[in-house]
Amino acid sequence: MKIIIGAMFEELEVIINSRKLIPVLNSVFQEFKTEDNKLVVCVSGIGTVNASACLSYLLTKYNHVEQIINIGTSGAICTSLKQGDVVIVDKASYPTTNVTSFGYQHGQVPKMPVYFESDKNLIDQRINKFKQMNQEFKIVNAATMDVFVDNKSIVDNVIGRLPFNAQIVEMEIAAYMQVAHLFNIPFVGVKIISDLVASDHKSTLEFDDFLPQAAKKINDLV
């Protein structure tokens, strides 16, 4: 079984409708699956707690999960990315987590890795597939925080303290990665850049206007 998980229904709507996925009744979350149960698509809701609760729920509910794929949108905090770019997430951490007084790295959860990572084999699979599709992409790192980043001060003084350079910011992927790490299930994240945050460069479209385009592109990638 494969699990595709994302924060918003609007991001996954085209995947769900185009594949005629069946709603799962009595689920705690918005959950859809194929008749053969080989694919589950689930909407976790926005934020780290929703993300971790949803994926933990799914991994407790289903056996034989082979891989987890997070698909969705994210904001870019570097000038090398633009609206509509496809990115594969390598590393992610929580920039608002600070236990450095006890010897941990900035963003590191106590007794957890310094940062969380996508599975290298799944990254390689996506790279090969995107190359076959002639789909341009970039490998990036993510800062996950329950804060809407709208000024450069947060980027410089909070996100900038992470032990790696983060190119995107969003609100779920590190939480998904942490749960996948705890359950020892291969994970990979693929994102569409929806907007440029805390930057003088402006997105071509506002987020709500761009979201339908992103959903279609997500479906094409899947």
Rank of each mutant, 00 (worst) to 15 (best):
Ser203Glu: 06
Gly72Glu: 03
Leu162Arg: 03
Gln30Asn: 13
Asn165Phe: 15
Pro95Thr: 03
Ser80Trp: 13
Ala7Asp: 11
Ser52Gln: 10
Gly47Asn: 04
His181Ala: 13
Ser52Pro: 14
Phe148Cys: 03
Gly189Ile: 07
Leu25Ser: 12
Asn26Met: 13
Val179Cys: 00
Asp85Thr: 09
Val158Leu: 11
Gln213Val: 09
Asn128Glu: 15
Gln178Thr: 13
His201Thr: 11
Met133Asp: 15
Arg126Glu: 06
Glu117Leu: 14
Ser44Trp: 04
Val179Asp: 03
Val87Glu: 04
Gln108Asp: 09
Thr100Arg: 00
Asp85Ile: 04
Val14Asp: 10
Ile173Trp: 12
Thr204Pro: 01
Glu31Val: 02
Gly45Trp: 08
Ser44Phe: 07
Leu81His: 02
Ser27Ala: 14
Val149Leu: 00
Arg19Asp: 15
Lys131Asp: 06
Leu25Ala: 14
Phe148Pro: 00
Val43Asn: 05
Leu58Pro: 13
Asp150Phe: 11
Asp90Lys: 10
Ile154Tyr: 14
Leu59Lys: 04
Ser56His: 12
Ile15Met: 06
Asp195Gly: 08
Ile139Asp: 06
Lys91Ser: 10
Asn157His: 09
Ser56Met: 07
Gly103Ile: 09
Lys202Asn: 04
Glu31Asp: 12
Gly107Gln: 06
Val14Glu: 15
Ile4Trp: 07
Cys54Phe: 05
Gln213Gly: 06
Lys202Trp: 01
Val24Phe: 12
Pro95Asp: 13
Asp36Met: 11
Gly189Ala: 11
Val169Gly: 10
Ile185Gly: 03
Asn98Cys: 02
Leu196Phe: 00
Lys120Gly: 03
Ile173Tyr: 10
Ser199Asp: 01
Val147Glu: 11
Val28Lys: 15
Gly45Met: 05
Asn63Val: 08
Lys33Glu: 11
Ile69Asp: 05
Phe187Cys: 04
Ile5Asp: 00
Asp195Met: 04
Asp146Gln: 10
Ile88His: 00
Asn98Asp: 15
Lys61Leu: 06
Leu39Lys: 02
Val49His: 07
Val86Asn: 02
His106Asn: 07
Ser101His: 01
Phe102Met: 12
Val222Cys: 13
Lys2Gly: 03
Leu25Trp: 00
Leu81Glu: 02
Gly103Leu: 10
Gln83Leu: 02
Val169Ile: 01
Asp146Pro: 09
Leu81Gln: 00
Gln108Phe: 09
Ser44Pro: 07
Lys217His: 14
Ala92Glu: 05
Ser93His: 09
Val188Glu: 01
Tyr57Gln: 10
Ala53Thr: 13
Asp200Gly: 12
Ala215Phe: 01
Ala53Glu: 03
Asn50Thr: 07
Val49Trp: 11
Ile192Lys: 08
Ile154Phe: 15
Val87Tyr: 05
Ile5Thr: 08
Val222Tyr: 12
Ile4Met: 00
Met145Cys: 09
Met112Glu: 13
Val190Cys: 11
Thr100Lys: 05
Asn37Gln: 01
Ala7Ile: 04
Ile159Gln: 05
Val89Cys: 05
Asp150Ala: 14
Val28Ser: 12
Thr48Asp: 02
Gly189Asn: 08
Thr73Asn: 10
Asp85Val: 06
Phe207Asp: 06
Glu13Gln: 15
Ile69Pro: 11
Asn134Ala: 15
His106Cys: 04
Lys216Asp: 08
Ala92His: 09
Ala198Ile: 01
Gly47Ser: 01
Glu136Pro: 06
Ile139Thr: 07
